[in-house]
């Protein structure tokens, strides 16, 4: 069973619909014990880091997620879900899951001509060889909506980069978990391809 973690963090129906489109039967999951039994996990998220993290912890889903990752279950984090892989987010000064060393920072608001959030379609600058990113080209465009970006300490954790005022991590991951800053479920055909790749992924790089 593929679980989409449901922690009151936004519109999960669109993630579920995109899974259905690529033949992946995914269920919303708000119960930590059900999450522990999942064979594949999608960790979405929109909204503010502090309140989303509080909601995740309140339901014990943070512990369950740590456990499934330790157990080698393939996990895909999307947007805020991806940002939660790091240690800390500057958004609402929030401690996060600490699966990848590094922080989440805000785009430079001092630059008056920069519109924040970074909203719309942007291409990747590069794209690592990774099963979940198979057949995705650097010039492919994905749909982004975010005001904060992930900044891992170890650049080997960065699987794809994009640019908005600065170069930032568009996809990060290691071992059996991967996260995208963009929304594959809203990124047309290339986004669906990524989800289809994830549906086939055994969790090794």
């Amino acid at each position: 069973m593929t679980a989409i973690i449901d922690y009151e963090a936004g519109n999960l129906a669109s993630v579920q619909r995109a899974c259905k489109e690529v033949g992946l039967d995914a269920r919303l999951c708000a119960d930590p014990d059900a999450l522990r039994k999942a064979s594949r996990v999608i960790f979405p998220g929109v909204g503010a880091a502090g309140s989303a993290m509080a909601s995740l912890c309140k339901h014990g889903l943070d512990e369950a997620l740590h456990e499934v990752i330790r157990n080698g279950v393939p996990v895909l984090g999307i947007c805020l879900g991806m940002q939660f892989f790091l240690d800390h987010s500057a958004e609402q000064d929030t401690p996060t899951l600490g699966l990848i060393a590094g922080t989440v920072e805000r785009f430079d608001f001092a630059n008056a001509s920069l519109k924040v959030p970074h909203m719309g379609w942007n291409n990747l600058l590069d794209c690592a060889a990774h099963p979940v990113l198979a057949d995705i080209q650097a010039e492919d465009e994905f749909y982004f909506v975010h005001s904060y970006y992930a900044d891992p300490e170890d650049s080997a954790m960065v699987l794809a980069r994009a640019e908005y005022e600065r170069t930032f991590a568009a996809a990060i991951g290691r071992d059996n978990f991967i996260g995208t800053q963009f929304h594959p479920e809203k990124s047309g055909r290339v986004g669906l391809r990524l989800i289809a790749n994830f549906a086939q992924w055994e969790g090794s790089c």
């Binding site: 719309g120 379609w121 942007n122 908005y164």
Partner: peptide, 8 residues
């Protein structure tokens, strides 16, 4: 670089 968008 961010693309400009066409919306219908």
């Amino acid at each position: 670089m961010l693309s400009q968008r066409l919306i219908a």
